[in-house]
Write a protein that binds this DNA or RNA. Structure first.
Lengths: 233, 233
DNA sequence: GTCGAAATGTACGGTACAGTACGTTTTGAT
DNA sequence: ATCAAAACGTACTGTACCGTACATTTCGAC
């Protein structure tokens, strides 16, 4: 056992901590594994995706995989965690132009929720809900919950300034999002649908905002009734 | 061999066909197996439920099971098929009292959709959507689709008689159901929630119908605005 | 180029499970 | 009581797969 100073220096510069990948090489390996696992898990689910398949796709070896992720479940957690965390955050520009703000929010939500990636993610999370309930909860809080809270906050602010006529901001937000998403959401869950086009999303966003304001905005009431009348199936 | 008349009569009444279970005994065995399989599949999912477990619970033997259901997948199909087919059908009493009709419809839908049985069924169907896409489609058509169509039909009728002011019955129905179900539906999917109580369901049904009529019923407009004002969180 | 750590490949242990084979027991009609 | 069909139970086959062991190769810093 010799203590050569070079090695000690090297070790010192790295600042490695037990868990985290030390070198660039390690990071790269780990990333490759995570990527392969993500693709396979999203496509095939947990039970149907074998470690061997992940190893083969990642190009690495089984032992390496297990040196980074102690178990299949841990790898799964890491995958879903990264996917959930790297998703587009819900945003709501708190403009005074209510129609514009709501429409933009609506379109953004639909773009995210009805994307291919999200569709795969949903199936995965629901399928493994019993095995990994904490993951399902994490998703719920970062996704639907967060989006809901954002909308509630905005509506409460508007309500206090009498720009909106709402008895319960909570319920109004639920209604708005329900109108917007529900129908396509279940189709997405049970059929294997194609995502709506940008046009369809815009169309729907506009209609939902119209109806919503019609029911909730006292000043705006009955204004655009004529315009809507013609151009719908 | 004596031919006593009683027995011949009995056999004649049976009318056995090749596939179908001949005797009472067979029917009973099959039913026991199906029941056990239903319970286990609904609770644990497809992959997690083993044939041996089903056999054990049904009290029968493996060979018997395989004599009725050629494969695990076939048994699963039979299970989901029976559960889906024996569900409560969506109903809509086409009364002229719009509020009453919609409210009753709404409460019925929620009672079904947020029942424990239905919650389990959803998870199962979504989880195995890739393995059994036809089953998912069957469920969708008999459940959400059917309920939607029913509502559309009703709304179109009302619209033609100018009792409702709707540009697209399709869209209106989507909005109504979305307002009604979406929020709790999602919670049910991602968390492991308790079903809403009868009171909560009534409360929500009333609110949804109110808001809906406010946005869509030209005659009813602005009538109950004051009443709603107080008693909401 | 040298050396140690990281990565690889392969093979294996252990286990869980779908489906089959077959000898034995139960059932229910005559 | 008798007899055939149905049900049973147990053991077995084959397979898929998680996780480990280990001997060998590659990499990257000096």
């Amino acid at each position: 056992m010799k203590k050569t100073s070079e090695k000690m220096r090297r070790k010192a510069t790295r600042g490695r901590t037990g868990a985290e990948p030390a070198s660039t090489r390690g990071q790269e390996r780990q990333a490759r594994i995570l990527k392969a696992a993500t693709e396979l898990f999203l496509k095939g689910g947990y039970g149907e995706t074998s470690i061997d398949a992940i190893v083969e796709r990642s190009g690495g070896s089984k032992a390496t995989l297990y040196s980074y992720f102690p178990t299949k479940g841990a790898l799964f957690r890491a995958v879903v965690d990264s996917v959930v965390s790297n998703r587009e955050e819900p945003e709501l520009e708190p403009s005074d132009d209510i129609r514009k703000a709501l429409t933009s929010f609506a379109e953004q939500r639909m773009r995210v929720v009805f994307s291919k990636r999200h569709r795969e993610l949903l199936g995965l999370i629901i399928s493994e809900r019993d095995r990994f309930p904490d993951i399902a909860r994490l998703y719920y809080e970062r996704g639907p919950q967060r989006s809901h809270d954002l909308l509630v906050e905005y509506m409460q602010a508007l309500n206090q300034r009498n720009l909106l006529d709402i008895s319960s901001a909570d319920e109004s937000a639920e209604f708005f999002i329900g109108m917007l998403l529900h129908h396509w959401y279940i189709a997405q869950l049970y059929l294997r649908p194609t995502s709506p086009t940008a046009e369809e999303r815009q169309h729907r966003a506009a209609h939902v905002v119209d109806r919503f304001l019609e029911a909730f905005d006292s000043s705006d009431r009955k204004s655009r009734r004529g315009r809507e009348r013609g151009a719908q199936k």
